[in-house]
């Protein structure tokens, strides 16, 4: 199992831009927003938590269709499905690799982008914490969407359509945590609910994803 994770990470590094692409997209979103809403620091500070969370979510979405597509095309997915490790574990490792190459860089870089958007000082901690807790759910849910659309020629747009409504609760609790954190309110409830979503998704969704892969390989 670890071998699969290492291989995916190695592929992401070798392919060049595996780590960078999502991050660059996140940067673009963060830079474009002030052009759209105007440069007033007050406005930016108010919307920063939401923008940062939406940007992270879109950056995650961007790389989802590559989770299984390449392995499907070159036959690796067939071979992984017949390998001794259960497909549920394969799917989990794929999601973990996606998080390490996309989610984790976002978590690390988000405070930097927070500076660009005048995120109030109290928000930085909560931004990092909420993204660290929430992005694994984004990767696991996205892996489920990718598993559903793996056999399709032009699955990219469909994948976004399927995954976006599933992202709603994660986004709401994640952004709410940061908003409350910046306002000095109690962040416990949204943060715990966010952690709950992540824990439940990580525990249960791999079964659905593996089932979808099996159907798609038939």
């Amino acid at each position: 199992m670890i071998a699969l994770l290492l291989r995916d990470l190695r592929l992401a590094v070798r392919a060049g831009g595996g780590f960078g692409l999502g991050l660059a997209f996140f940067l673009i979103v963060t830079v474009l927003v002030p052009f759209g809403v105007g440069p007033e620091g007050g406005t930016l500070a108010r919307i920063a938590p939401g923008i940062l969370w939406v940007g992270a979510l879109l950056a995650c979405l961007l790389s989802l269709d590559r989770i299984f597509a390449l392995d499907f095309e070159d036959g690796s997915l067939d071979l992984l499905a017949t390998a001794p490790i259960p497909l549920e574990a394969v799917v989990t490792m794929k999601a973990a690799a996606h998080w390490l190459t996309t989610g984790l860089p976002l978590v690390i870089a988000a405070p930097l982008f927070g500076v660009l958007l005048h995120l109030p000082g109290a928000g930085f901690f909560w931004l990092t914490v909420s993204l660290a807790l929430g992005t694994p759910a984004l990767s696991v849910i996205g892996t489920f969407g990718a598993a559903l659309t793996v056999g399709l020629k032009r699955g990219g747009l469909l994948l976004s359509l399927l995954v976006l409504p599933l992202y709603v609760p994660t986004l709401i609790f994640g952004a709410e945590t940061v908003r409350r954190g910046t306002a000095g309110l109690e962040t416990g409830p949204p943060l715990l609910l966010l952690a709950g979503i992540t824990a439940a998704s990580v525990a249960l969704l791999p079964f659905a994803s593996a089932a979808a892969i099996r159907v798609n390989l038939r």
């Binding site: 070798r14 036959g75 690796s76 017949t82």
Partner: peptide, 17 residues
């Protein structure tokens, strides 16, 4: 199926490895 090694049309090779 665990006793069977399958080799299809595609070899499952990664070009960058």
């Amino acid at each position: 199926a665990e006793a069977i090694a399958y080799s299809g049309h595609a070899d499952g090779l990664k070009a960058t490895l």
